[in-house]
Design a protein around this nucleic acid. Structure first.
Length: 629
DNA sequence: GTGGATGAG
DNA sequence: CGCTCATCCAC
């Protein structure tokens, strides 16, 4: 890799497209002033920030234990999270609880929250039983939301992409540019003597004070280190930390000579400041320590973040100049998306031949090779995109049954449990985006050791999503999938929403859901009455065949409603239920407007069954479905 | 729409 | 390593 070139006005080079791929691009005034260069921005700065041992950290916050207390999170018999205090005892996620306790007798052991019979909310119980309980990760999701909200508040100028429950990408390019221009005002105008005008390279950057900004990955790593990291797979221990200390000492002796700063380095350092102070606030306000990696793109930011953990003081920073040597010893499997089969295949191919032209790779691996080819050279064009309110396109609740189901009622039972969880979670998500709508409901079931099978059905929109509503549809799917076989032997059940998206208000009704519905002969302009999505009998033409179609008669207004004719592929019971719920919504809205015209119709607010009686609160959560076996 | 494959943690 | 969760794609 070429050594860093010092940008200078006297240089003959004029920046071209080609330079965008370079690790040491010539950065011109045009680059600096540009607003929408996106992934081609030579000043692009991306950070990945993730929480250290997130589930364990959540439990530490919840239980108010100090960070020195070794703690593990348990899911049945398996460790799913180990905090750093516990890792010092050599405990890892792979261990059995028994082994962990042998290594650390005073280990704090916390089982994840579970749904339990007779309780409406998930909770932390003394004795959990996989035969009767179901794991709930809700608390972690909520904490995760808290954290990402705070980050977004603190870093309003950034693009933020929540990548998983415990990590997010940040694109610092915009705020960094602004600070760059504030701090170095002379950059704001192209000097009159600049040879190529706005295409003139920027003047040499000032020296950078990296102190306290983070761990700056060395350009030339000390000879005998680094590869060691491969062998002890992610197992941080005292030896590792010693190793790091040594590295730090060694690096300081030659760091200065090696580092000829670039404006991108300045950009990195500014991002490190911003990221660092945001992380400090998250730690202070919410109690979560995080690790960050800062680099020129997502892939490298991710890789950099995992370089050195935990990382409470500062993040890790990967300068462009350090990329080649940093990448060299990194195992394929550590790269995102290459942790599995694909990575293995590539690794084999690379071992076989030292020279691997892109053409060859493409012959063997197709499209994917371009991404891999570039990524191995430190290039990643993936953008940081704000997924907004629709973080997930699907939502799944599942349960593995240690003792397989033998009769239909047990299946019914678990479906209602899973439905309850989905209802809770979707209604929760709707607090953020009221118009969230899962297009389909999918039921998976596995019999014995066979491969799992699934059935799915369209999921009609309702303003209020109830357990009953989901479970009714789930039961239908169960019948299709499992039937009533005596020896059903179902060992795993999963219920999922898929195709979750926000919908237009006009598309929300059951009417919008039903295809080819002819029932609405009148135009929609005839009023905003939400009760007119279906005609009742007294408005129906005499020649119709509504009497043979499924119908529903409202006990309050005595009107009878029918499903439209062409409801192919739609389960009539479910459609009818949707129809009924929507009609009830109508009454609910009427009641509200009658009581006060100030009260808005709030999604998820309880619907009084009878406004004159004392409100009988409908059981929330899964309470009513447990203990009804 | 169904079912399988893949991957993260 | 067992479990939970998520996405993508061939058919």
């Amino acid at each position: 890799m070429s050594s860093p070139k010092k940008p200078t006005w006297t240089g003959k080079a004029k920046a071209t497209e080609r330079d965008f791929n370079d690790l040491n691009p010539i950065i011109t005034y045009r680059h600096l002033f540009a607003q929408n260069l996106g992934v081609r921005d030579p000043l692009r700065v991306i950070a990945l920030c993730d929480s250290d041992a997130f589930y364990a950290a959540c439990e530490m916050v919840r239980l108010e234990v100090d960070k020195e207390t070794p703690l593990v999170v348990l899911q049945w018999e398996a460790l799913i999270a180990v905090n750093y205090a516990a890792r010092k005892f050599g405990i890892s996620r792979m261990d059995k609880l028994k082994d962990a306790l042998e290594r650390c007798p005073h280990l704090k052991v916390v089982h994840v929250a579970t749904y339990k019979e007779g309780e409406k909310e998930p909770g932390y119980w003394d004795n959990v039983d996989t035969n009767t309980h179901k794991v709930s990760l809700d608390y972690y999701r909520r904490e995760s939301v808290k954290i990402s909200k705070l980050f977004k508040e603190l870093l309003v100028e950034c693009e933020v992409e929540k990548a998983s429950i415990d990590e997010a990408f940040f694109d610092f390019s915009k705020p960094v540019r602004e600070i760059l221009l504030q701090r170095y005002p002379y950059l704001a105008t192209v000097p009159p003597n600049a040879p190529d005008g706005v295409d003139t390279p920027l003047p040499p950057p000032p020296p950078i004070h990296w102190d306290d900004l983070g761990w700056v990955i060395p350009i030339n790593p000390p000879p005998p280190s680094e590869q060691v990291e491969e062998e002890n797979k992610g197992q941080e221990n005292d030896i590792d930390q010693e190793k790091d200390k040594v590295q730090e000492d060694v690096s300081s002796s030659w760091k200065d000579e090696e580092s000829i700063p670039t404006w991108h380095d300045v950009a990195l350092s500014i991002a490190a400041e911003l990221m660092g102070s945001a992380r400090a606030q998250v730690l202070q306000k919410l109690g979560y320590s995080t690790s960050a990696g800062i680099a020129r793109n997502k892939f490298l930011a991710k890789l950099t973040a995992s370089y050195k953990k935990p990382n409470s003081q500062a993040g890790s920073i990967l300068r462009n100049a350090a990329i080649p040597n940093y990448l060299k010893p990194i195992a394929f499997r550590k790269i995102r998306f290459l942790g599995g089969k694909l990575g293995k295949a590539f690794a084999q191919e690379y071992d076989a031949s030292t020279v691997t032209p892109l053409d060859d790779m493409q012959n063997k691996f197709g499209e994917e090779s371009i991404w891999v080819y570039e990524v191995l050279r430190g290039i990643d064009r993936a953008e940081v995109k704000d997924k907004g309110s629709v973080l997930n396109k699907s939502m799944l609740a599942s349960k593995n049954l240690p003792k397989p189901i033998k009769n239909a009622s047990e299946g019914h039972h678990w479906i209602r449990v899973l439905a309850a969880e989905l209802a809770l979670r979707l209604n929760d998500a709707r607090k953020e985006s009221p118009n969230l709508w899962p297009k389909t409901l999918v039921l998976h079931a596995r019999k014995g050791y066979e491969a799992g099978r699934s059935k799915q059905a369209p999921f009609p929109f309702t303003r209020e999503i109830t357990v009953d509503y989901i479970a009714t549809l789930g039961d239908k799917l169960w019948k299709e999938l499992v039937g009533n076989n005596v020896a059903m032997n179902v060992s795993s059940v999963q219920l999922a929403f898929t195709g979750i998206d926000v919908t237009e208000v006009g598309q929300q009704s059951i009417e919008g859901f039903l295809q080819n519905s002819r029932v609405n002969k009148r135009s929609r302009e005839d009023g905003i009455n939400p009760d007119q999505h279906f005609q009742s009998d007294n408005t129906r033409a005499p020649d119709d065949q509504s009497n043979i179609r499924p119908s529903y008669t409202c006990p309050r207004c005595s009107k009878t409603y029918h499903l439209p004719d062409a409801t192919s592929g739609v389960d009539s019971d479910v459609a009818l239920k949707a129809l009924r719920m929507e009609h009830e919504d109508f009454h609910f809205a009427q009641d509200l407007t009658r009581e006060s015209d100030q009260v808005p119709i709030v999604v998820g607010s309880p619907r009084p069954l009878n406004k004159n009686k004392k409100q009988r609160k409908e059981p929330v959560g899964i309470e009513k479905f447990f203990g009804r076996k």
